[in-house]
Amino acid sequence: MPTHTISILGQNISCIRNGRRVLKDLSFETHSGHALLLMGPNGSGKSTLLRICAGLLRPDAGALTLNGEDGIDNPGILHAAHHYIGHANGLKSALTVVENLSVWRSLFGTASDAGLDHALSTFGLAKMAETPAHYLSAGQKRRVALSRLLLEERSIWLLDEPLNGLDEKHAAILIDCLSQHTRSGGMAIVATHQVLDIPEAELSILQLGNATP
């Protein structure tokens, strides 16, 4: 049995958004080398669950622990361990691609120039490095957002429909990144509408339905 270096455990999580119960008594577990796919129809609470795991949203009930430590009253431990890429890309449209990346790098407080170049080249952004983000297509913007994952090594990746706008080639690159990430002991929680076939990763699917009100 492999030793799990990092694990997230969610127990009986409930969340009410705008008077509607989005998540009801949801429990899940994920750990190093594991990719958890959140699936379900629109409005089934995939994004809500991701934001809870990111420590950006407080559930109304339930417990969430990272390596046994409470992550709800102390979201700082979650913040330090994850990359969260929501459906908004977090790009500043006035800045160029490379400027956006270096802003993130300065906020992470780490990463060398090599890390930045690696992030740029992996997602095929080198050619448009000096282009203001404003002029990029939706898929290109998505690629810039995803390149954030490679700027700094963090063990938890929280991705909200990462394939949105990506062409086949770059979807394959993302899946490759996910595979490498899980192989090297990381974990990923991915909200998605199609089953991602991530090679060599332990995959499981958490099916979210419309919780009854």
């Binding site: 913040h79 929501g86 890309n89």
Partner: peptide, 11 residues
């Protein structure tokens, strides 16, 4: 643009 999430997650 979603970058507030990043600012909220800073140490």
């Amino acid at each position: 643009d979603g970058s507030l999430d990043l600012l909220l997650s800073l140490p």
